[in-house]
Amino acid sequence: MMIRYITRRLIITVPTLILVTMLLYVLLQFIPGDPLDAYAPPDAPISIAQRIVLRHSLGLDHPPVVRYFFWLRDTLQGNLGLRASNFQPVSDAIANAIGPTLILMGTSLTIAIVLGLVLGIISAARRGSFFDVFFTVSAYLGISMPPFWIGLVGLYVFALVLHWFPAGGFDTPGQPFALWDHLHHLILPAAFLSVFNLAAIMRYTRSALLEEIGQDYIRTARAKGVSKRIVLSRHALRNALLPVVTVIGAIIPSLLGGAVFIESVFSWPGMGQLYLAGVQARDYALVMGITLVTAAAVLLTNLLTDIAYAVIDPRIRYDD
């Protein structure tokens, strides 16, 4: 039964992706400006003649509807078009950016999940204790500051004042590959990127656990003398995982598409920066290309999340 459900979901993925790109294309037409307006600074704009040539080189001289079908056709053949700013193939730009983003995302997500679960469990088990209140207040402190701003403060403190970490970047320019150098550059942005997700996972874990602890089967187990630790880990946690898994499933595509602010402040050459540049430059091909990748990630993680539900809680069925 599950196999049929998964197959059906996978088949729906294709029209969904096409729908997303079509809607995006329509919306892009409403946003003022096109790549030519971004080609030069506003205080020294480009000439009409230059505009016409560039427009043609970018294929912008076709009507939007035609352009969409050209885009779709080329994309199906594996060609995502060229960036407006420097005519680099969009697929190259994405291939260059996705590696750094996956590294950053993977690290920060690992930190967020591990610490989030552990701190969430502690908070729930000792509800109302000093730890609980302390973690709660810290979590909300962490998510109450704009990410760009808090990143800048972090850069200032850890790179400039303490000299513990480098001031942004993916590695030391011009140096041969060194694992330590990479890790050294990774720690700070990964830590700051994990703050919001850590707080979210921790709060959902805590809340779901409290919910489960209130359930009567837990009370029964406790009444029968099963230790609190075992009740928590064997029974409550498993069921509490549902919202936590949902949230992690929502975090993954959002991270892939852009830790825009953290990437900007830490000069991390990832998808978020690329995406921001694409939007600011009205670089249609780039925006479409990145959206295609993130949309595919959304559909996949949502499917994986739904499968995970059924694994966690066999009562969940999708076929009726």
Partner: peptide, 8 residues
């Protein structure tokens, strides 16, 4: 939901 989530 997928469409909205996929949308920038």
């Amino acid at each position: 939901v997928d469409v909205v989530m996929a949308f920038p």
